[in-house]
């Protein structure tokens, strides 16, 4: 899904080395929920060589047919500004907010970001008990189980999920399903 190169635009004239450092930013994009809108957004990223680290889409305002797309992307500040403006050119896009920039304006390091994962662990005996104990420590809940497996549901920051999954690996990890990042800024203001 990710374009591997970080060319700022399609111009062949960018022979100068980028001196700015790439950063991870989380963008919230409010769009009309109509056919093809996700393809337009993703096509923009692949067509212009931008990165997608994570993508989450869902209808958020049913009556107005609005969906909110949360994209974690990586680029230099210059590229990130381009991404925002290019997204705003798409006709069904209403608003684009760089949540990371916004959180900096509020004096915070980053916006609130959460992921959810379903983690299936199979095993018996000591490993099974250990998995359950660790799940409890991580506040993962058991949503399905029989005598040979658990399915845990865990939410949190990506790093917490990474850690939980790493710990489950030797305890009989079978499969994982993760959502992308859902994010919003702290405080009373909307996007």
């Amino acid at each position: 899904m990710n374009a591997q190169h970080l060319q700022p635009t399609g111009s062949a004239y960018f022979i100068a080395k980028e001196t700015e450092r790439p950063e991870n930013h989380t963008l919230s994009v409010l769009v009309d929920n109509e056919p093809g809108v996700l393809a337009r957004v993703i096509g923009l990223f692949s067509g212009r060589g931008y990165n997608i680290e994570s993508l989450t889409v869902s209808e958020t305002e049913h009556e107005k047919h609005l969906s909110r797309i949360t994209i974690v992307t990586r680029g230099t500040p210059h590229v990130l500004e381009q991404i925002k403006h290019q997204l705003e050119r798409i006709v069904p896009v209403h608003r684009v907010v760089d949540l990371t920039v916004r959180s900096h304006e509020f004096g915070q390091e980053r916006p609130l970001e959460r992921e959810l994962a379903l983690v299936k662990v199979a095993g018996t005996g000591e490993a099974r008990v250990e998995a359950l104990r660790l799940a409890d420590a991580f506040r993962a809940s058991v949503i399905d189980a029989n005598t040979e497996h658990f399915i845990f549901e865990i939410t949190g920051k990506g790093s917490k999920l990474d850690q939980f999954i790493a710990i489950m690996k030797p305890l009989g990890l079978v499969e994982i399903c993760r959502t992308g990042v859902a994010a919003m800024n702290r405080g009373p203001q909307g996007m």
Binding site: T9, S11, Y13, H78, E81, Q82, H85, Q86, E88, R89
Partner: peptide
């Protein structure tokens, strides 16, 4: 008229 043209190149 197109904000994406600004600071692009």
């Amino acid at each position: 008229i197109d904000p994406s043209s600004i600071n692009k190149n």
